[in-house]
Design a binder for these strands. Sequence first.
DNA 1: AGTTAGCACTCCTCATCAGTGAGTGCTAAT
DNA 2: ATTAGCACTCACTGATGAGGAGTGCTAACT
Lengths: 342, 342
Amino acid sequence: MDLDERKEKILKAIIANYMKTGEPVGSRTISKIPDLNLSSATIRNEMSDLEDMGYIIQPYTSAGRIPSDKGYRYYVDEVLRDKELEFSGFKTQMLEKVDKLEHVLKHLAKILASNTNYATLIAGPTTNKTKIKFIQVSKMEEEKLLVVTVFGGNIIRNNIIDVRRTLDDDELLNVNLLLNTTLNGYSIDDISLAMITQMKEKAGDLKEVIHILISEIASAFKDATADMQIYTSGTTNIFKYPELSDGEMASKLIDTFEEKEKLKKIFDEADSNSAIQVYIGEESPIQNMKDCSIITANYELGQGIKGTIGIVGPKRMDYEKVLRTIKECVTQLDDSHGKKDT
Amino acid sequence: MDLDERKEKILKAIIANYMKTGEPVGSRTISKIPDLNLSSATIRNEMSDLEDMGYIIQPYTSAGRIPSDKGYRYYVDEVLRDKELEFSGFKTQMLEKVDKLEHVLKHLAKILASNTNYATLIAGPTTNKTKIKFIQVSKMEEEKLLVVTVFGGNIIRNNIIDVRRTLDDDELLNVNLLLNTTLNGYSIDDISLAMITQMKEKAGDLKEVIHILISEIASAFKDATADMQIYTSGTTNIFKYPELSDGEMASKLIDTFEEKEKLKKIFDEADSNSAIQVYIGEESPIQNMKDCSIITANYELGQGIKGTIGIVGPKRMDYEKVLRTIKECVTQLDDSHGKKDT
DNA sequence: AGTTAGCACTCCTCATCAGTGAGTGCTAAT
DNA sequence: ATTAGCACTCACTGATGAGGAGTGCTAACT
């Protein structure tokens, strides 16, 4: 099943060439490569073998070959595997000057898009795994409480909750104290039944209120992706690749980028394993992106603040560059934010 | 400068026909209309006149005519002016079930897009003209205060402000009391110098803190458009209109829709006059939309909650339908929300 | 004088057709 | 095992021409 050295060289050459031009690659083109000094006829035989093995495809008889999904997969897995993914020359301009996390991510998406020439999406951190820093409950209207939750990284979420009961100032103070002392430093996911019963015990009269508050808050954040923010940029980069920009295709892709809900699927999968993930063609978790490749990577800012970066491009995307860039990017996010978030 | 009845009929017919087909309209097509019983030759003469007057354009010699911007303008101003814009059959499905304003608007954008077949954008309310309902200042870290401002319609904004000083609990209580009693019921724009000095006088020791808080809050909301939320939907509808969907054009349009900042220009203009606004072709405030028509309308949910709805389509869009729909939509927004926002 | 029929002309669109070139597979010679 | 040679395939290009939709103009008609 393995390829001998020559076949690999040829496959590599085909992929490299097709990445640049987007056109099927012929045997003559390969035969001109000085490294492997072979005639086009020999190349043809080898290419025929490669096609039988499923690494390349002939779009129609007597055309050149283009890499198949399997071909790309081989390239990514075998060829890029032990390559040193060194500094990418990725420009970090201004990344540190912005402060709000939301802005940082938006900006980063733009930078990534313009650096790679592919479409970029960034998922903001999900709150349910981020540590709670501070909770403030206040009375907004007679029976309505405003709950402000501050998570690590100063991510703030608001909930208006209807407790069917009026609280006086003392009670409010108690609730605040109780919630803060108990939940501080834990994430939503961390909240255990034990903690809740413990709070209820201490709550006395306020048992009921605490119950409503906790369950409402929990259900608001329950669904990991429910309040996930997704920032996209460079959608129109797809027009740079003819294979993606004909009407039908482009329309579907852009639609997917507009409907952020659909994009969540990508991040759902990415969550499970922490490494960089490469989806090629049919492997894509999103139906509409079956003709694209998607590369995702998880970033982490400490304090349980985790999110995902994704880049979407044609199957002939420059995997090496994107992998380098995205890796660098994740590293930088880590560093740059680590500094200021004490 | 006015058109006689026959010319108007012909112009109308040309526009109506072009709206449907998107193809240049010839004299023979018009001559077949039973209403005005004329031969194609007569129509030709009239069309020649209309062209001289600038209402229609001939894309190339010996092609049919298409309406010019001026032609559309005449149609919108004169023909649609006194037409009864009655019930549009606009589906309001589920509009009332959703609760959060943000969700309502997102959803509404989708409904509008699918109803009209054009791209839709909705600007959420700007906070600086909405009445403040409740302010809560709390201590998050030693010198950092968390300010939560609740506006009418339960729009919530958070600010983390660094007052260079520690506040004890009593002081915090004072600040809260002061801010709430003074600012309640006013909008950010309403806050006068007098109010500020008044607060400072009462603040005593906390003068400095109040100063920082007020100026920070004000500057955060200052720029009306800074925190304006824009929801878009149906971007890919433009692919339904060939004149907008060729590479260059489509790319520019979609780019504009992605970069929400650019869209703000539309709403900046819309603010000034409260009526429905129609921009045809070159009249567009956005460079990239010079080949489109844009229709905007302001909605108002009471309590100073105001925003704008916009629909973008080809110049040959169905103005009548869009005007009807958008009008209906604004009315419904008004009603449906008025009910539940006591 | 307004309207219309007729005609020559323009220009787009579409299908056809042959030529070209890049590419392949196969065979036979090296 | 490699390569040169050859016949064949197929997309792409450009020219050509028919067809059609539409115009403008003129002359005849009411």
